[in-house]
Nucleic acid binder design. Structure first.
Lengths: 309, 309, 309, 309
DNA sequence: AATGAATGAGTTTTCATTCAT
DNA sequence: AATGAATGAAAACTCATTCAT
């Protein structure tokens, strides 16, 4: 519905905008760039309104470090108004008007984030920042821009929220992983693809990592289970492939589970490094190195064997 | 007890004493203790011994410009002995004996598990069972068989208890790891030994694992930091060795940190498997397989297989 | 409601609104609220009213370079009204009405004693009965007829509750006292009035006395400080008056601070007597005697008695 | 007994010395003055030892801001030793020896403070610093240099300790006050003397003031009672005198109790001022001003009446 | 008599969850 | 459906008091 769309979009924007203060200067410097402030008064108003609305989208896409509050913008608007010699009050009400009209247009196309999605987004935010126990339902509800009661309409309790959050994403991962295991690639290609899917997933879901891997244990042992069960479910498939490869002499005869857990661990280690580097590069870049080491070890045997490298 | 024995005893005592520092106040309270020159002969001996130890330790800490030798104090002891009508000879050896016993009591002496140990044991129990947040001080105290207040006599708060618990064990691990890195082995031997030490450690401290590795993040980022910092501190040493080995063409030219984190992760993965098997076998048994894969990969290259790459 | 009425209403509303600031977040939350342009007509009116109030207030705070007049916004409101298919006329007056009601609700509206008031009342009860340390939060909550958690919704902790309780009343006293000191009376009249204000205040706030005067020291030195600082703040004014009077030979040349503290003490002494008599009479009745003694002493000099000195 | 004397003196000294750290620099600067560091090695040792012991006495007399720890002295000793080219260790043991001998001598004459007195002293310290509720029995025992259990041998509980502490001192005050009221002076002289006694008492017992006047209420209403009951007990005597004086026309006919409470309050007010000035002058100095105002008021009537002033 | 480790009742404070509006 | 004020169970932590040595 039109009205609801608008409401949700604007509200969520403002809510999100309402937390930028921490990152001082972040907003301000951003605000002043990239706005064309020439042209008629009308055009400036238009510009500002669109700009303000654009920020919302950026914010939603995660391209901005944090959220913004309307009040943050008011001084900016006023400075511009002063600069352009437009009465601050007229300027302001003009922008407001434009925003109202504009938002209507913009929102028509925007897929409204459902309440549930808003909550899940906020939950991921908070959980990954503070961990399960230190996160409070209050904060999640606040960040989601919904009432606490509403949250409880969608999730039976905090734990359920957490689990559903993780499970949801995990399902995506599983789906991708399954697709690979169900494929017809040879073992090594399959493993490489498998690793790539993992890296890509966490590349995309950075904050999820600690939730899944590091928080899992506390929350009633369910998530940890989940994580490993999902991962393990398709193992038989993999196992068969691997045993086949082994018999062809392609793979060494080391205990399958040891290697499996080890490889997963290796991958997690690399993710740790990546987290320690603040996710400043793409995880996938690590893939070649990882594959090289896991397949052929880190000892350089090339003096004798040339086919590698 | 002959003189050499005494010397030996004193030396070992002082060495051990110097490890007490951590226990906040432990040493300070020594220093603060007054010199009681009345009471029974026994008490005077005790008093002098402790006083001397306090001075000695200040000296060792570098708080004093010069080092004190026991022999310098002998005249003082004699004077006091005379004053107190205790045979100077008996007085002196008495003091020495007290000094030795004191240290023995404080450091070696866990004839019955001390209260602190009982608490630490119970804490390990509960923390590893429930995680930091779900563990309650009440339960730890109860399992330790002490009152809640007693627990707080020994640990300032829950967090301190947790950290001290982990740090204590971690120090052992670090010490072993350091010993290896400081050694003169070639790189591959060193890495093998390093992995062995890890496996042995967790073999011995099964329940500790999740505390150290999985709880770390919550508890004020301190433990996680600790864990990795401790491990990382010696990295430069390792790095140098590895770069050396690389230049000799012994190791591949894969990013050092990637491999390091990866190898640690591999190891953790194997530990996970072991935990999943309820620690039903010795972790060290995994070592050969782990080393084989990490060194030379899991691909069998011995047969010039073409399907790869 | 005619136009003047509205003007009047808005003015009084805004004035009252500006007093809300203390209630932390009270205003901020206004500002933070988003503009909802969907939902029922009623909701839109509400939304616009609140939004305007927020801007208005920023303006009043000096955060904006110019002041906004309501009239500037009228076109915007009209545009929105048009857009939403609400009669512009009805829309506007609706918004205005909401604005007035909003303020009424927030500020005047204590038809039933608010939760916060109930807590403050109970706190005064308990604190004055048992003192700060012996009063328990449990008892205060119980007497207020609210849950413990509710109390903590309104006051960050016990100390804050105490301070807010005292500070609130103290502000009244200070306001009255200031009014007198700022007046144009001659010194003696001023002092008399000052004493009267004090007596009247404690007549009205019997139980508060011990809290303010006798508990002060413990609670982080804040209240005691507060009490005296508030009282002292206006001293320079008084001092000037008194020095003037002194030069005219009206007052004796006794150290100002000695007399000031002494007079305050005298007053407190009389209050003590009154408390000892269970506040069974009006404190103000003591005023004439107090003034007589403080002004002219308790020695009867009217008869040229020689035995003195 | 000799031994006990020594023990107590040294121990109490060291205990007291053990708290100077707070007042930084306080000790160090003090330490370096007033020591003659010329003469033979023997003389220096002697000097240091005596000096160290002297500090104890100063400390006990309250002439030093706080307490000292032995360890604080060691660096000083060492610096001197170095400076004088005496082996630090020999120097140190020399001083120790001297101290032992010296303390024996010094202590023979010192009236040993009984355990109970030590506790009362410490209690006054702590209570007046922190107030009844914030003071802990632990700290009192520690500062008294006795075990907690010992404290409980002498006082049934914390409250009793507090009351006994206050009562003890109050008795002194009462005794002095009684002596005056029992005297044959005329009323005004008597009142003047009475006020003097009060001022002298609190001059001598600075820290006691807040205990008696400001803490009283909490501690089971007993102390407050005590204070006023003691003060009031002799009132009838005073009252009779005053009524007599009144009938002679010497005193004004203002309600006796009002004036009595008022005068006491005036006095307390002046004490407050004095406390606010950190007791930096003698309270008794205020007496003339206080008497002048109370007797004849602060209004200057001298234009008409010459007999005053 | 002296000690100080041990104790647990009693406090403050938090936060997931409910429910009237 | 949405809300957020109200709740109280549960947790951390303190400290006066006891009691075995």
């Amino acid at each position: 519905m039109n009205h609801e769309n608008k409401q949700q979009a604007v509200r969520s924007m403002l809510k999100k905008l309402s937390q930028v203060k921490r990152e001082e200067g972040g907003l301000k410097s951003f605000v002043m760039r990239s706005i064309r402030l020439d042209g008629s008064e009308e055009e400036i108003l238009e510009e500002m309104a669109q700009w303000f609305l654009a920020v919302r989208d950026l914010s939603k896409q995660g391209a901005l470090p944090s959220r913004f509050s309307l009040s943050e913008f008011i001084p900016v608007f006023c400075r511009i108004a002063e600069d352009k010699n437009i009465g601050a009050d007229r300027f302001f009400s003009g922008v407001l008007e434009k925003m109202v009209l504009e938002s209507e247009e913009v929102l028509r196309g925007a897929p409204k984030p459902s309440t549930k999605d808003k909550i899940l987004d906020a939950a991921l935010d908070v959980f990954s920042e503070k961990g399960f126990h230190l996160a409070t339902v209050d904060e999640i509800a606040e960040r989601a821009g919904v009432g606490k009661g509403t949250l409880y309409r969608y999730f039976a309790n905090k734990e359920t929220l957490f689990n559903e959050l993780v499970q949801l994403r995990l399902d995506e991962l599983e789906k991708s992983a399954m697709a690979i295991l169900d494929g017809e690639d040879d073992v090594l290609t399959m493993i490489t693809k498998y690793l790539r899917v993992y890296f890509e997933f966490f590349d995309q879901n950075q904050r999820l990592y600690r939730l899944i891997v590091q928080e899992g244990l506390d929350v009633g042992d369910q998530v940890q289970d989940l994580y490993f069960k999902k991962v393990m479910r398709r193992i038989p498939l993999l196992k068969r492939k691997i045993y086949g490869a082994r018999q062809q002499g392609l793979l060494k005869d080391v205990d399958f589970h040891t290697v499996f857990y080890g490889v997963m661990g290796f991958m997690h280690g690399v993710i740790q490094k990546w987290l320690a580097r603040d996710c400043s590069y793409s995880l996938v870049e690590e893939l070649p190195g990882v594959v090289e080491v896991l397949f052929y070890g880190f000892v350089n045997t090339s003096k004798f064997v040339e086919s590698q490298n």
